[in-house]
Design a binder for these strands. Sequence first.
DNA 1: TGTCATCCTTGACACAGATCAACCCGAGGT
DNA 2: ACCTCGGGTTGATCTGTGTCAAGGATGACA
Lengths: 247, 247
Amino acid sequence: MPVAQLQSLQCSDCPIRHRAVCARCEADELEALNVIKYYRSFQAGQPVIWSGDQMNFVGSVVSGIATLTQTMEDGRTQMVGLLLPSDFVGRPGRSGAAYNVVATTDVVMCCFRKKPFEELMARTPHIAHRLLEMTLDELDAAREWMLVLGRKTAREKIASLLLILARRDVSLGADERIGGALSFDLKLTREAMADYLGLTLETVSRQISALKKAGVIILEGKRHVIVPDMRRLIEEAGDDSDGGLVG
Amino acid sequence: MPVAQLQSLQCSDCPIRHRAVCARCEADELEALNVIKYYRSFQAGQPVIWSGDQMNFVGSVVSGIATLTQTMEDGRTQMVGLLLPSDFVGRPGRSGAAYNVVATTDVVMCCFRKKPFEELMARTPHIAHRLLEMTLDELDAAREWMLVLGRKTAREKIASLLLILARRDVSLGADERIGGALSFDLKLTREAMADYLGLTLETVSRQISALKKAGVIILEGKRHVIVPDMRRLIEEAGDDSDGGLVG
DNA sequence: TGTCATCCTTGACACAGATCAACCCGAGGT
DNA sequence: ACCTCGGGTTGATCTGTGTCAAGGATGACA
């Protein structure tokens, strides 16, 4: 999840900086983007669908969390992606095995209408190039997650997820650090975490308790996590790549 | 795995048709591509690395199988991608968590030198667009695989893998059909399958035996698989999307 | 204040798949 | 003919996680 390295982009009226479409000439593109964008909000639990037009290109999360999930007929579901503020999403369900995009909390998205966006892409090749880079990054992240799903223990899975969430909050500046400790809000239910990790919610609960008892994390309430020592958490995750967060 | 729908592209001297870079003006691009390409072969077990230059862009498998794998310090490995003939690969290890590309059998690849390839991309925007589409397809495939890894049983996993391999062979015309039955060669060891599915090789062996006993598949030797009824296999995979292969 | 719903925790037990171990089979090599 | 070695099968047992079930905490609402 090399999110921290991404260029970012500030819309005229969004409260956050989006992951960038254009790495080179931000100012120019911004002006163009501000013209063709509009906002939509979704309630928690609501599927994220662009009005009518099959959601043909791209939107960016401004606030809230949306998830990409796949479901089998018998109800088993697997989350395949997490859309946190600043993430882009586009073209779900285009090919064979469609996944669903659902708002997990209340969500506001900044959307770009398909046609003008594509015209913009055609005019400015480096935007297309940047989009390719972003997609390749997502592919890397998905493949990294395959290791988590296929080979890690429940405890390692939980630690890996906490690590990802912590890093995201850090890269958005939404974290708090007090004397080396890092704390952040867990915005997912135990069930959502279970769906992401390929576990049951009971196992998630147990492993979080275990990490708490081991002193790797401290819980305030059920949703606020304090990580006294990032290195401990990284170790629990069985992760070698530290994402440049320790220093 | 919407491979069958992809445009394909015949090099001047490759025996196979590659998944297309250019969907629109094949002839022109072919000429350009034939100029800047060269071949490399790799022995089974050998890591696939472009001579010196960090493998900065793209190569396509002509024959053999290469795999993308991720490994933890303690040796646990998870395969995150399978490169079959006609697949493209590019930019491994660029971002944080690098995966390894290894030739699983002897492999011949058709490579495009980084610089001329990128120039070609810049000149012809629809090639860049096509590359984006291909990457999005890979992302979809990776996400589909996350469902397999996270939520399917061992038996379903095996069936899913067989299904993918069967479909790939069909789309390359490498299958044989006799009276509705479909047969193909399994080019992976039990261990490779296990790494792909997040299982142990023993479990793979057992589940293959189980599918054999149940009559879902027939084995000739250890590596040749006959599927008498594709529908049975799809059912075992717990898969709703039939990939357009049944009819 | 009580009721209800949602989210979470914890315990007891079952079972799928991992682990450990023995053995089989076919292909080279000498 | 014999040996060796990689790949594959099968059995016995162990264990991590799922399943089922009961109950706790918190907040919304009447």
